[in-house]
Amino acid sequence: MANITTNNPASTGFLSGISGFFAAIGNGLVKIAENDSRVQRAQTLNALSDAELAQRGLKRDEIVAHVFRSSYYV
């Protein structure tokens, strides 16, 4: 049995700080999007079976258009 240990020194350079800043902004935007009630509704509908969606008059490829229909015009 072999064990391998890798120690990577923490990067503290200028570019590391900038990338950390933008990563934090990106993570914040993802959390905002995930907490949107429409995104949660789309996830709930996506978790249903095809038969359950059919009872609601939807197809799987129509979920996003159905949930966001008031937000955009196509």
Rank of each mutant, 00 (worst) to 15 (best):
T44G: 08
Q40A: 11
V30C: 04
R38G: 05
S71L: 13
L15H: 01
A42Y: 06
G17V: 02
T44Y: 12
G28I: 03
A51L: 04
N27H: 02
N8H: 06
I18L: 11
M1T: 14
A65K: 13
I4D: 09
I18N: 02
G13L: 02
F68P: 01
L53Y: 03
R41N: 07
I4N: 04
F21L: 15
N7A: 12
G57E: 05
R41G: 06
L58H: 02
T12S: 06
N7G: 02
R60K: 13
D36Y: 09
M1Q: 12
L53M: 02
E52I: 05
Q40H: 02
L53P: 07
A24N: 12
V39P: 05
S16P: 00
E52T: 05
V30T: 08
T12H: 04
L45G: 00
A2M: 15
Y72M: 11
F68E: 00
T12N: 09
I18D: 00
A24P: 01
E62R: 06
L29A: 13
T6F: 11
G26T: 10
A33C: 03
R69P: 01
A42S: 12
I32Q: 10
P9Q: 13
Y72E: 08
K31V: 11
A2D: 12
F14H: 00
V74L: 08
K31F: 07
N8M: 13
A47P: 09
A24M: 03
P9A: 10
Q55N: 13
Y73D: 09
D36W: 13
H66I: 00
I63T: 10
G57K: 07
A2I: 15
N46E: 04
P9T: 06
A54D: 10
A33S: 08
G17T: 03
A42M: 14
S49V: 09
S11L: 13
G28T: 03
I4F: 12
Q43W: 01
M1H: 11
I4M: 11
V67W: 01
I32L: 14
G57H: 03
A23Y: 02
